[in-house]
Nucleic acid binder design. Sequence first.
DNA 1: CTTGGAAAGTCAACAAGGCTGACGTAAATT
DNA 2: AATTTACGTCAGCCTTGTTGACTTTCCAAG
Lengths: 164, 164
Amino acid sequence: MVEAQGGESLLFLTDEQLRKGIEAMFFAYRGFTADPDRILEGKDYGRAHHRAIHFIHRSPGTTVSNLLLILGVTKQSLNRVLRTLIEDGLVRSEKGKVDARERHLHLTDKGQMLERELSDAQRARMRAAYRAAGPAAVSGFRQVLEAMMDPDMRRQYNRLKEGG
Amino acid sequence: MVEAQGGESLLFLTDEQLRKGIEAMFFAYRGFTADPDRILEGKDYGRAHHRAIHFIHRSPGTTVSNLLLILGVTKQSLNRVLRTLIEDGLVRSEKGKVDARERHLHLTDKGQMLERELSDAQRARMRAAYRAAGPAAVSGFRQVLEAMMDPDMRRQYNRLKEGG
DNA sequence: CTTGGAAAGTCAACAAGGCTGACGTAAATT
DNA sequence: AATTTACGTCAGCCTTGTTGACTTTCCAAG
């Protein structure tokens, strides 16, 4: 049915339709980040800390270089964030055993607690959105998002999917 | 049918599923902004200028206050952006005739040209994603995004949808 | 007609979080 | 032994967000 409609439905990809999608992304991303931002404000952390915490939680023992690839920022920028997280005892950085140049990153218990708080909030919103939209919508949502990624990022995304 | 499946499918809303959605949003948003960012870099403008240009194009004659509501930034922040756009002759600001306190914003021809360049790029990516995902996915995509917005933002989003 | 308040603009100061460039160190690789 | 890699750091810059204080303009209600 998707296949059969395919050719015809593409006729409806007017600039107007596309613009709605663009604006939906804009407004939805605001909602997406709103809850963690609220939690972090006043805690002396920001969105950059959240991202680091998320992906360290996601891939415990990941290296700094790997995190750089995923986050797509400079090492100076990441380092600033990482340093405060380590100083504050949220993240533990340990020398690699096989390759001692590498630093393997883990969340401490304290880090886990903050990660929980942040991801609980973000998951709650995602869950509510999924429920409101219905199960059929969820798969479409993910398909479009995946197709929208740059190939490099899609690779990172899929590596994370498999890994976990 | 969505209703009927609803109860069962909700069982599959594991933390894992939700986390994938969260990461998909993160990586997809990077792709979403990548093309305009590339175009703007070197032109002395940034994402903030893009947003202003987009919504002025979208609602010609809109006021500064209205733009503030949509963008969700402070007037000082918006004003800095707006000032450079006006100085550079991309945006025209004219006193309201019915209420002279208001400033009505329009894109100049030069502004239209940049808007075109930016939105062409962004639409091209959106179009490619829609095509890759298929028409059924597109509606699900928009449904989930709408459900993810804060109510205030959903109102803004819908006002734009109707208006245009 | 005066006054209160909304809309808009401006100045100053600051912070987060990007960036580049340069440099240093330890460890691995060649 | 020389080079490359992984990481950390210092210094400086930019964009884009923030707050606070203040002015001007204007509408509308008392």
